[in-house]
Each structure stands twice: as structure tokens, then as C-alpha cells.
Design a protein around this nucleic acid. Sequence first.
DNA 1: GGAATTTAGGAACGATCGTTCTTGACTGGT
DNA 2: ACCAGTCAAGAACGATCGTTCCTAAATTCC
Lengths: 189, 189
Amino acid sequence: MGRPRGFDEDQAVQAAIGVFAERGYDGTSVDDLVASLGVHRNSLYKTFGSKGGLYTRALRWHVEHQVRPLVAAVAAAGDIAEAMRRVLAADAAEPGFDLLLRAAVERAPVDPEIAEMVNGCLGELDEALGHVLIAEQPGAEKAARVAALTTALTATVLGLRLRARAGASDTQTTEAGGAVAHQFSRHEI
Amino acid sequence: MGRPRGFDEDQAVQAAIGVFAERGYDGTSVDDLVASLGVHRNSLYKTFGSKGGLYTRALRWHVEHQVRPLVAAVAAAGDIAEAMRRVLAADAAEPGFDLLLRAAVERAPVDPEIAEMVNGCLGELDEALGHVLIAEQPGAEKAARVAALTTALTATVLGLRLRARAGASDTQTTEAGGAVAHQFSRHEI
DNA sequence: GGAATTTAGGAACGATCGTTCTTGACTGGT
DNA sequence: ACCAGTCAAGAACGATCGTTCCTAAATTCC
């Protein structure tokens, strides 16, 4: 059935995640991708259709294989402090969720498909944090309030990573995460 | 002293803020700027030096004239709920702080001058929230804990605006802001 | 009313953008 | 062995990128 491929598709997608996360969509050229992925132009277009197609594939892979496990780890945490610690630890290490962050800022507003993936993923994180919050505060039945708080907590996580990217120190973000977790855990919500 | 200018410099900078905030740095071409600012190429380069120079000027103006008043309004708020309301209201309206958000994500990591401006501005927001927090909780002397909490609160604000950009509804972000403010205000920190 | 000086208006630069085409190398099925 | 089909390699496409150059128009100073 023809000549076999000289590259692994998933491996190429993973490399694309790193490049897009670092330089952004508009800041990444096809030449950059060709050089970083080890996949030649023709194969790239044959396999992914376009630069945008590769980006969508990369974000999908990122969400499903890198962010989803992080969400699962958060959902399995015993308390908010532990959940916060896990999400910030995964954030500081590779691969984190930098591509999701950048996609939310620069692609979601102009690409409905990207927006749907981003919001779906953030919604899952909301849910995970909600489970931890409810398990920790068994007396709180007000689902609406929990939902609002989890939205805020997810926003805090995103914002802390954003500040880390912009130059904030690891200790600053770690302490901030711990402080907000403490604030949420020692009183009822 | 030569032919007078056919454009207002501050007005051009303000227009640039809008364009850069909407399309990002790499997503904005000089042709876009020429068309949106009503300033012709030669004048643009004569006045601002380069695309990057104009971006720096735009961000500086944004921080000093648009974000700073917002920070002042936050600092003057009576409690965290009011501060949160003010920051989210200014966020939903024009001009908000979208350029600061985008700069933090896509320019601060690669441009030290931008990083310094962004972090300085976020630090001011931290301070403003810290004042409100301390005034509200007069018994809390632990400055370190307040600093960590304000870092987290600033991150929450950034994250909520990020989610709004990505498609979250106004009510969702508003309720989230209210919920987190409530969480911070009705117990001591 | 020139001379000097500054801006506006565009054409034009080389470089790079995303994408396509051409050619040859390599494979499985008959 | 040969044909059909897939992939690699790279040249090449028109368009657009950020930037510069040249000329004409408009102002102040003498």
C-alpha cells in the first residue's frame, strides 16, 4: 500500500503542541513546524490539511491526553489544597496546559471549534473542583453557589499560570495557590 | 517648523490598543495598523520607530491611562465584593484590560520590557486588593498571607476575563466574582 | 517669496508567509 | 517484474510580512 511513513503521527502532534504553546498560533510558521516536527511540508499538508488543521489536532490531543489526566487528578484529590497543589505542580512541569491557555486567549475568540474545546475542557475542570469542594463541605447543597465558586477557582488556576508565564516566581504562585486553597477549605462555603 | 501632522498621536495609540488587543501582536500587520489608525506608513515609522515600538507605546498608554484608573477604583472600594464588581464591570465594558491580558500571555515571555510593565501593573493590582483585604479584616497582620491571597485574587480576575474572552457568559463570570468575594469577605483571612 | 524642514502619499524592497506542484524513492499486490 | 499507490525532498507559487525610499505638499523662518 505504498511507501511507509518516516514519522509518527502522534509524535508529530505532540511536537506541534510544544511549538504552538511556546510561540502561539500566529507566531508559528509552517517552516517552524517542518523544522521542529521532522515532518516534511508535503506530508504535513497531506496528513493535517493545513496549519489550522494541525493546530486543532494538537489542541485536541493536548486536551485529551495532557489536560484530562490533570483534571482527573484534581477530581481525585482529597481537598482543595491538594487539588491546587496538583494542578500547580503539573503546571510548572511539562507539558502543563500552556496550549490550552494560549488557545483560550488567542484562538477561541475567532474559532468556534477551538472555543468549544476550550470551554468544554474548562467546564470539566470546574466539575472536578466542584466534586472536591462538595466532598469537603458536605453541608453545602447550593449547587449554584458551588458552580460559581468552581468557575472562580478554575479562573484562579488559569490566572496563576498566566502570571507564571509572565514572570512571576514559582514560590509566588505556589503560595498564592496554597493561600486560596486554605481560604476555601477552613470555612464552609 | 514643517508641515503639521494630520493625526493625533494619543488618538493613534488608543486605536492601536484596540487593534492589538483584538488580534494580538503577531496577528496584527502594519497594514492593519495603517488602515485602523488613519496614520500612513511613513508617519507611523517616523513617530513610533517600528511595529514593536508602537506596541510598547500602546501597552504603556493602556497601563497608565486605562488599567491604572481601574486599580485606583479597586483600591478605593469598601470591600472585596465591591472591588470585584468594579473590576469585572470595567472588564466587560470598553476598554477593559484585554491588551494587558494578551501582553502577559504572548509578549511578556519574549520581551523583558513588556514583562516588566505587565508585572508592575499586576503588582499594583495586588497591592490595591491587599489594601481592601486588610481594611476589611483589621485583625490580620500576616502580610505574607495577604500578599499570597492578593496574588491569587489578581489571578482570579485575569482568569475570569480570560474565560469571558473564550466564551463564558457575563452572568457566569459575574456570579463567580461575587462568589469568591463572598468567600473572602465573610470569614477572616 | 524662496530656503529649510516636516509630513503625507505610495511605490517598492527583500524576506517570509501558507500552500501547491514536480520529481523521484520506496512499498505491497498481482 | 511490473504496476498502482504512498511518501519524501525540495523548488516554486502568489500573497503578505515589516521596513525603506522617493517625491509632492504644507508649514515656519528669514
